[in-house]
């Protein structure tokens, strides 16, 4: 019986539900690595190169955790969604890095729409490797896509509804693999929710709307996930009180795109960069003063 391991980092946050639906529809057992803890992070730090970005180090930690617990590890490669929608080069390289660092079986597919490598082709290929019949794969793929679209629509609606709330509203700008990771961004989210702030997430907007809007901040931008983020800022600029940028050190697209956004923003913002030895106590002080400042502005 084949078991597929899914590392809970990077790609997981974009495709988690889709993968899970797909595998359960095909009756393939899978395990997901646990929520990031100190041990996993340390494993990642040990495996990785000191200059790699924190998210990639974290990813390697998750892979290291899974390596002897399953037969295959699922590692896609995402290159681009048509020409001007590239991803970060770490997304291009993750598969090759893992393949060279670990001695494991890897299930991989490539998303490169410039060369007509689509998600559909990728998942079909994976189904084939796991000895499933084409008819089963087709059914599972359809089911997963439909479920996924429903879920995304629901998330978009929740996010939009939050914009109408009367509480202090803050837009969190960051990549989902940083925002929702236990050791990277989760503490910040918890702290803000505890302080009764309405949080809006930049990755939960409809990309069809936000990608177009991002041109108002940056005309030349060609990073897909940065486009989502900047577009979200433009979309809700007039309805929110502040923006918090969260990125991992040293994130390549963020270093340029977020800098440009900060230079063009007219509302208060806070830039948080997290590396492998930042402590939450230091962050707490900064968050507190940022909230104080927003509060002060509201009372005026």
């Amino acid at each position: 019986m084949n078991t597929v391991g899914i590392p809970r980092s990077l790609f997981y946050y974009y495709y988690k539900d889709l993968w899970q639906d797909f595998f359960s529809a095909l009756k393939i057992s899978y395990i997901i690595s646990p929520i990031t803890n100190k041990e996993i992070m340390d494993r990642g730090l040990k495996m990785s190169n000191s200059e790699m970005c924190l998210s990639l180090k974290n990813y390697l930690g998750h892979v290291d955790y899974l390596k002897d617990k399953c037969n295959y590890i699922l590692i896609p490669r995402i290159s681009n969604f048509k020409n001007d929608n590239q991803t970060c080069t770490n997304f291009w390289a993750a598969y090759d890095i893992v393949k060279n660092l670990f001695d494991i079986n890897i299930l991989h597919y490539n998303i490169d729409l410039n060369q007509k490598q689509t998600l559909k082709k990728g998942l079909y290929k994976i189904g084939k490797i796991l000895n499933k019949k084409p008819r089963q794969i087709k059914k599972a793929y359809k089911y997963a896509i439909i479920q996924n679209n429903k879920r995304i629509k629901k998330n978009h609606q929740i996010n939009l509804n939050k914009l109408k709330s009367k509480k202090t509203k803050i837009l969190l700008v960051g990549h989902p693999y940083n925002l929702y990771d236990e050791l990277i961004g989760k503490d910040i989210i918890k702290y803000l929710i505890k302080n009764d702030i309405e949080l809006i997430y930049s990755d939960k907007f409809n990309p069809k709307i936000t990608n177009h809007l991002s041109k108002k901040i940056s005309k030349d931008l060609y990073f897909k996930y940065s486009k989502d983020n900047l577009g979200a800022i433009v979309y809700c600029q007039n309805q929110i009180n502040g923006v918090i940028f969260i990125s991992s050190f040293p994130c390549a697209p963020d270093s340029l795109a977020c800098e440009l956004a900060m230079r063009k923003l007219t509302i208060p913002y806070l830039n948080i960069v997290i590396d492998d030895n930042s402590s939450f106590t230091g962050l707490e002080t900064r968050l507190e003063s940022f909230l104080d400042m927003l509060g002060g502005k509201l009372n005026d």
Partner: peptide, 28 residues
């Protein structure tokens, strides 16, 4: 420093050099 593509290539280059037993020096 912070050149992302090359950082990704470094572990692989290291591995090749190890396999062939050739010294490699990294500068950032």
């Amino acid at each position: 420093s912070f050149c992302t593509p090359e950082i990704g290539a470094m572990p692989i280059i290291n591995k090749i050099a190890n396999e062939y037993n050739k010294p490699v020096l990294f500068f950032s």
